[in-house]
């Protein structure tokens, strides 16, 4: 139950964030999608034992969060809540590979621990960039951008439709689930049978709704083709955004900046 309403709240919240006006919000959504992709590919291309070289990449999310006026706390909470699968798989690494590969002071660090940290860093960076993309562009704009980037229209329309009716159906589902909860005691009534008929009813309603929507579409001249009146402008600012970040990512990918800086500090100290 809490899950349902919080999901609805969550979608609504990220939608609100995406409706702000900022330098970042104003950048062409296609450019943001592409930049995010470059960022992701760069991050994922690191080997499992690299940690220090991943740190400089935090500049990208931090930069965007600040310039786009997004709340840090939201992203921290999101990352903690979201998808424990990666962490679950990663956490096994320290148990599998216990070879000590380096010492910090007297404490030995195992290879498994290092790769676990590596997975954690990857996880935080990749999740952050995806969330920031939506929070600065808005889901609908991303869909339109995807269409302009040659994603099949059929899929884009599905994305838009599902997103639109998520709000309606989640509300329906949460009402039904509330109804069930009010009448279950000691866990009786939470089982498969009640669940299946509840979901079945939700499904029946969905089928009927689809029919009504189709009628509403037909009565306004729908002929199988959905045309929208939107257009996107590709400006210089957006172009620069993409080029500059791509260069930054590339530099950070090739050079292990913290390592190099650290070395020079050590040399100077000596």
């Amino acid at each position: 139950m809490a899950k349902i309403s919080s999901a609805l709240f969550d979608i609504g919240y990220i939608d609100t964030l995406s409706r702000q006006n900022s330098l970042i919000h104003g950048i062409d959504t296609r450019v943001k999608v592409l930049t995010t992709l470059v960022f992701l590919i760069t991050i994922v291309s690191f080997k499992t034992h690299e940690i220090s070289s991943l740190f400089p990449f935090f500049i990208y999310p931090v930069f965007l969060i600040i310039l786009a006026d997004l709340p840090f706390s939201y992203f921290v909470r999101k990352i903690i809540i979201v998808s424990p699968f990666a962490v679950l798989i990663g956490i096994l690494n320290p148990f599998i590979d216990q070879t000590i590969v380096l010492y910090i002071g007297k404490i030995g660090i195992s290879g498994g621990l290092i790769s676990f940290f590596n997975i954690l860093l990857r996880f935080i960076l990749t999740v952050l960039s995806a969330l920031i993309l939506v929070a600065t562009s808005g889901f609908n704009n991303i869909c339109i951008a995807l269409e302009k980037l040659y994603v099949p229209k059929m899929l884009v329309i599905q994305l838009l439709f599902i997103y639109r009716y998520l709000f309606v159906l989640i509300k329906e589902a949460s009402q039904m689930s509330k109804g069930r909860k009010l009448r279950t005691f000691n866990g009786k009534g939470m089982g498969i049978k009640v669940y299946a008929s509840l979901i079945g009813h939700l499904l029946l309603r969905a089928l009927n709704r689809a029919q009504r929507i189709h009628m509403a579409m037909l009565s306004r001249g729908f002929d199988g083709e959905i045309r929208t009146a939107s257009n996107m402008k590709f400006d210089k600012k957006s172009f620069l955004f993409f080029i500059l970040w791509s260069i930054v990512f590339l530099i950070m990918r090739i050079y292990n900046l913290p390592q190099i800086v650290g070395y020079f500090v050590v040399i100077i100290l000596k």
Partner: peptide, 13 residues
């Protein structure tokens, strides 16, 4: 035709 449930009629972004 104006349908009873506006959600059925407002299907665009």
């Amino acid at each position: 035709m104006v349908f009873q449930d506006p959600d059925d009629q407002l299907f665009m972004p």
